[in-house]
Write a protein that binds this DNA or RNA. Structure first.
Lengths: 344, 344
DNA sequence: ACACCTTGCTAATACGATTTAGCCGAACGG
DNA sequence: CCGTTCGGCTAAATCGTATTAGCAAGGTGT
């Protein structure tokens, strides 16, 4: 890319020393003795010439490119968005690293070839990310490499995982409801089964439900019912409408995803029920719409940024990686959709 | 990263030829004569050993890293999202290139240091992107480099720009309204002025308005009024409420951004007006919520993916880059928010 | 006076590729 | 029979940096 860069040889020449001396002076290493005078002259020359080391050339010897690869199935979809990348990027920047971003779109062959492309460029490590929490089997090219799994689990694959703490989030949802005085007429919308149309239910759904039911039980309360539905707006709308049509009068809805809440709002509105006056609603994810809805939705936020940040931090930590599962808290976003039950 | 990679020397040894021969055989160059037999043996050896060239080592000589840098102010915000990156990434992948993604968060110093980090890694070119269409002055480190400006314009900076065709989108909005029979009581919500709170209005707003008014005029129609407001949901809600409270009865609303439409929907709903029965609504951007709203919003889509894709295509085209402005069409997403005017 | 350290530096090599220059033998033309 | 060409290969240099090995000068201890 255009005019020749200043090399270390240029700096050495200008400072009147050998490249070896220049190298040691610039890297600031003390195990080789360089006089203060020489060191000063080298640094001065480097400054004047605007010298910047060529990282790729350096990596030939040092084996470190200060570069990390990021492989994901899909980064563009709503639930698992750019915040993950941003978190990883900023953690990388704090340590002068740069991030290659790739996306395989769920195609195994593409995934392999992207991993190769990364390894060909000598990345120091790879973040293998999924857009919703699930079990994965990373491509064989990654075996034995420095890898962190982001938002996914791979039993038998020797690498740490970073995932949201869905279980604790379920517990917090229950606590929020109990704290508001809600203990009866609580329905869960979204269910805990593996729903083919929305595979994030497999892990997230089960954990959230487990946490939720546990705390309700401890608090002497229980779910009045569980409605299975796909984790999308349309199905949320349909299932809550059906629930109301069947004559049920819930006091609180725990929607397993914000998209479901959005559908629930519509169904409740059409039935003339107000949120949170007649029905409290709490859900999970904190997508963008959650804060824009009227009333604003109380929800447990998927900590996208923190997930990305922690994954990168782990990678940049020196020493070997331990195959541990790191659970990142899902903070409660307290907004306007929860209230005390009306005495009616 | 772990076990030693197979090098070209290994391949040459196994094939019983010199590294030189191996290099020529593998690169498939014909200007050096290699017998078919030798070539075959080299390729076979490479296959058996699973040889992959070390791109960073190669780049030392060739000066090409097959690597592009992406610098943006912010990629995570809603309006200008991951689709841009995806477009750029896929275009890169088609040509075996990889993308460094960076984000400066609007900080000039951070921007400079990120550009340095990219150049230190010998990127072949840089995409300089803005999250909304505006005038920029790229950091001086990029002068004289191979650069494409994405979603921004920099007069005096010798590089091509890729931007959405806002003007033509304005014209298409007017055409859609006229085609539905709407020619009276048309209000523009959002205005064409530079609104400090929402700087995307500076270019996008003006162009959209210019196109809109032009076609209306050609069609013998005109705007009944223009309401200035910030490009967000809250202000859209307020201004449309105020408009209705002042006794106006618009037949069609052209909202300059989807977020404004969302607020307009709320205001119209509260006033007992239905979309599109009483009032047609069309807007710009096609954010995620546009298709989820009831009725689904007709809008002109910001072609994020295409912008990213074209920018990368330009970069990977051989030959020098011409400082031309490329305008990418904003396709009309025809949904349910436009209808013929009621005779009332 | 001699061996021995210490200080402060440089020469040379390595990293993994590409590329230039050149070598050897066979064929070919006159 | 000699000079030239051509096919098929290799040696060596190069890219920009890091690192190992070693060298010369001066001081120190005995």
């Amino acid at each position: 890319m255009s005019e020749r860069r200043v090399t270390m040889a240029d700096v050495a020449r200008k400072a009147g020393v050998s490249p070896t001396t220049a190298s040691f002076a610039l890297s600031g290493r003390t195990d080789m003795r360089i006089s203060d005078a020489s060191r000063e002259r080298v640094l001065e020359a480097a400054r004047e010439l605007g010298y910047r080391p060529n990282v790729t050339a350096r990596s030939l010897r040092t084996k470190s490119t200060q570069t990390i690869g990021f492989v994901s199935d899909r980064i563009t979809t709503t639930p698992f968005a750019g915040d993950v990348i941003r978190g990883a990027m900023e953690a990388a920047r704090e340590r002068d690293h740069l991030l290659f971003i790739t996306e395989a779109g769920g195609d195994r062959a593409a995934e392999s070839s992207l991993v190769h492309a990364l390894l060909d460029r000598q990345v120091d490590a790879v973040i293998y990310a999924s857009m919703f929490t699930r079990y994965v089997t990373p491509p064989k090219e990654l075996f034995g490499r420095r890898v962190v799994l982001l938002n996914c689990l791979a039993p038998g694959f020797d690498a740490p995982s970073v995932v949201p703490d869905e279980f604790e989030a379920g517990r917090d949802a229950a606590r929020a409801l109990l704290a508001a005085g809600q203990s009866e007429g609580i329905w869960a919308i979204g269910g805990h089964q593996a729903v083919p149309a929305t595979p994030e239910g497999i892990i997230a759904g089960n954990e959230r439900m487990r946490g939720l039911e546990g705390v309700l039980r401890e608090g002497g309360a229980r779910l009045e019912g569980v409605v299975e539905c796909d984790w999308d707006t349309l199905d949320g709308y349909r299932e809550v409408s059906a629930l109301l049509a069947a004559g049920h009068r819930p006091r609180a809805l725990v929607c397993l995803a914000d998209r479901v809440s959005f559908g629930a709002y519509q169904a409740l509105g059409e039935a003339g029920l107000s949120v949170p006056g007649d029905v409290s609603v709490i859900s999970f994810d904190d997508q963008d719409i959650a804060s824009v809805l009227r009333p604003a939705l109380t929800t447990l936020r998927l900590p996208h940024y923190q997930l990305g940040h922690l994954a990168m931090e782990l990678i940049l930590r020196t020493g070997p990686l331990e195959a541990v599962v790191h659970r990142v808290p899902m903070p409660l976003q307290s907004r306007a959709s929860i209230a005390a039950p009306t005495s009616g």
